[in-house]
Structure formats: structure tokens, C-alpha cells
Simulated assay, not measured.
Amino acid sequence: MIPALASALMPLIRGLDPETAHGLALKALSWGLAGRDSTPDDPVLATRAFGLAFRNPLGLAAGFDKDAAAVLPLMRLGFGHVEAGSVTPRAQPGNPRPRLFRLEEDRSVINRMGMNGLGIDVFCQRLAALPRPLPAVVGANLGINKEGSDPERDYPAMTRALTGIADYVVVNVSSPNTPGLRDLQGEARLIAILDAMAASAPAMPILVKLAPDLSEDAIPALVEACIARGIAGLILTNTTIERPASLRSPQAPEAGGLSGPPLFAPSTAMLRQVYRLSAGRLTLIGCGGVGSAEQAYAKIRAGASLVQFYAAFAYDGPALVPRMKTGLAALLRRDGFATVADAVGVDA
């Protein structure tokens, strides 16, 4: 099945309960039913970030493949990187269902999954079993258990377990669906976690994922703390707990993190702010509300070296990836950029 055909079937899948549909999509991917994008990437899209080579800057955000069940089939759809997770030290069921909601009128998603998953051991087994070399970069997004967590212990331990089987790890301190997790974005707590990570001498790049709901005043100290502790980059941003007045869906009042188009403006504003603050000392990944080549390009021009998306992929299916790559390459060439890196931050 080619990506365009798989995308044509998306309306049928969306007729199912969102979480059931998501599980079915993962199974279809793991069985190879979504096909692959066999078109070579335009050379203008090749880039480097935190010491790694990316065939293109487009990536799948964490949350889609929590248990690393379909990493290779997802890569074959044309992504330059796939970020699996969030994974927790131990398996946990997450929050009660229903916990995933489509806001069809807004092309958005609300989730309060609660980091359901099979835990780090299964996650590592699946990544270790993948045939190498992989066609794209693989990242691992790390979370904590709802009960019995010790962030200063758990984040370094999971990083050690992933050494040699993931290309980079992300310290997720910004999901709104695990009690107390966002408190870890406080300067003192984040510093303690990053110090513990540094003490374990990680052998791969470490990134931190932040929430779009942080106050502007809190951001400079967090940026400097990350730079001082050798963090490779930041992902800006996670989902939001805000509910813009523009939302039209009757599902809008549901609790959880909102992703999709309403997140684009605030996440891009924060990206631009952090790009200016970091002054080239951090690599930034733009995430939030991206659904087109134009929006991916706007993230790059605002300071992102790489771009991630999730909600748009859930709505449009596999055909979105090659379409965005073609469009992004055309935009870069139109404006005279020879590489993605040349366009990073030109609007910031």
C-alpha cells in the first residue's frame, strides 16, 4: 500500500474511537501496510543537528509510538527522524479511558493518556532488534511513572539503558498528564535532574522538552541552566493546557494537552524567544501545530534546526510526509537557501 492510498483510508479509520483507531494504525504500520516513500529526498533537505546527520529536518513527535512498536515502518514513510515514547521506567496503564479526543472542527487533538506504556525494558528490546543502519535518526522521549518515581534516578537510568540503541534522548518534563511532572520545569528541580544526567556521563545527546505554558520570565533561567550543563538542545513545545477561544469543537472542554493548529502561534513565539536567548548554544526542535510545508519552514526561520509534528499526521496520514518534504525543498530553493541550516533563525 503506498502512502497516498493509506491516507485515503484515513476517513474510515477516523470513524472509530480515537484510541482504537490509533492502535489500529500502529498495527497496520507494524505489518507494513502503510507502504513507504521511495522518492529520494532533495539534497537541500539534508542537515546536521547535535552531531547527527538527518536526511531531512522533518520528524514524528513523541506520543504517536509510545512503545517503539513501529519505528522502522514510520521511518520508511519519509521522516528524517522518529521520536518514540514517552517511555517510563516501569509499565503502567495510564489514565482511565476515554483519554484521547479528536477536535475535528479544529483539526486538533486533546490527550490525557498519562504515559501508558510497557516500560523501558520492552522499549529497549524493540529498539535493539531493529536492523541497522536505520534509514533515519531515532530518538527516545523519557517520562516518569505516576507512582514511585525518582526523576534524578530514573532519567539517568533510562539514558544508560538506551545507550547504543537510540541516537538521542529527551527529558520530558512538560507533559500535563502526569501529576507533578510539569513541576520539574522549575529551575531548581530541572538543575538537579540535569546534574544527575551529567554525572552519569551520557554517551548521546540529551534534549529537554518544555511546555508552551511557561511564563516568559521563567524561560531565560531554564535556557541558561540547560546550556551550563551541556544539554544539546530543546524541543519547543509540548502540548498546552490552554483552550483558545477560537476552538469550535464540542470536545474542547476535555481535560488534557491540546495539540494541533491552535498551538502553532504560541509555540513558535516561544521558539523565537529561546533562539534569541540561546544565541547558537542550543539546537532547537520546533514542535506544535505544524501541518504544512509553509508552517515547517516558518519554524525553521524562527530558529528550529529540526521540526516535529503529530496531530497533522494523525489527520492526513502517510501522504503528508512526502508532500511536506517536496514543499519545504521548494520554499528553501525559492528563497535562495542552499541548506536547511542557512535558513535557521533568519526571522528571529
Rank of each mutant, 00 (worst) to 15 (best):
D167I: 06
S200K: 14
I165W: 02
P176G: 10
E216W: 12
T178V: 13
L222Q: 08
T178H: 06
S175K: 04
K209M: 02
E147R: 14
T163D: 15
G230T: 01
D183F: 05
R160P: 03
I206H: 05
I227E: 04
A199M: 06
I191E: 15
L134D: 09
R189F: 07
L194W: 13
I206S: 01
P205N: 01
A161I: 04
L118H: 05
D150V: 03
I165C: 13
P131T: 11
N145C: 01
G139T: 01
L194E: 06
L181C: 06
V223H: 14
V173Q: 10
D121G: 03
G180I: 01
L118A: 14
I120M: 12
A129Q: 04
M197C: 15
G230A: 04
A129S: 15
A166D: 02
G164P: 13
D167V: 11
E187M: 09
N145G: 07
G180Q: 10
A198S: 15
A203Y: 02
A199C: 01
R132Y: 00
I206M: 12
G186P: 03
L127Y: 12
L162P: 13
D150P: 07
A201H: 14
L118G: 02
A161C: 03
A225M: 03
P202H: 04
P212S: 00
G139E: 05
R132F: 10
A192M: 07
D121Q: 10
A203V: 08
Q185D: 08
L234I: 13
S149R: 13
Y168R: 06
D150F: 05
I191D: 15
L190D: 06
G143P: 08
R229L: 05
L222Y: 11
A188Q: 14
P156C: 11
R160N: 06
A203E: 15
I193P: 00
L134R: 15
A161H: 09
P135R: 03
A129N: 04
M197P: 04
L142D: 12
A129D: 11
